[in-house]
Amino acid sequence: MIRRHVYVIGLAAATLCLPTATAGAQDAGLEAWQKIYSVFSHPRCANCHVEDERPRWSGAHYGATRVHGMNVQRGPDGFGNAGMRCVTCHQQDNAAQLHGPPGAHGWHLAPKEMVWWQKSSQEICEQVKDPARNGNRTLEEIATHVRDDGLVAWGWAPGNGREPAPGSAQETYLLLQQWAAAGAPCPAE
């Protein structure tokens, strides 16, 4: 009889605790996502994750938001137009001169479907999870891409007084893993 009571109490506790634990994971996942969103929506990242043809100049030190000067456009492959490729000005490293062009290996625009510029937290979250719009990547592949890609890494070390994205590549990698482990929840809006 006592054993039976213990069993019933245990079952009830488990039933009560299960939704609580899931909600906890959900909250932790959303908390991790919010930090990821603060990175992805930062100008160092979002300026080149646009859905039109033109990268943006924006951020703390840029004054008013503008489209990239010199009629710079995406071009057929995301690396600029014939005669004015991204690499025409953006070399392997930041130019040392004040107001000179920043640089990193493989400077280019993100594909149009990976749009972050002026998108909400929920919109970016859903895009990141959608293989049709994330380069057909798993969440783990996204995390390692963020950790290891040279152009992505520039966002945390933009140099010349430009405001870096929050945190670091490694921290963002860990946040993406935490978010994925929590079921990759997206905020409701």
């Binding site: 025409t88 000005c89 070399q91 130019a95 001169q97 004040l98 062009p101």
Partner: peptide, 27 residues
Amino acid sequence: CGIAQCGACTVFLDGEPVRSCSVTVGE
């Protein structure tokens, strides 16, 4: 201009146009 904004210094690097004022020779 010295900051890759005018194009007067344009040369080819392996056939691609670059602004030579903003490429270090080490690159």
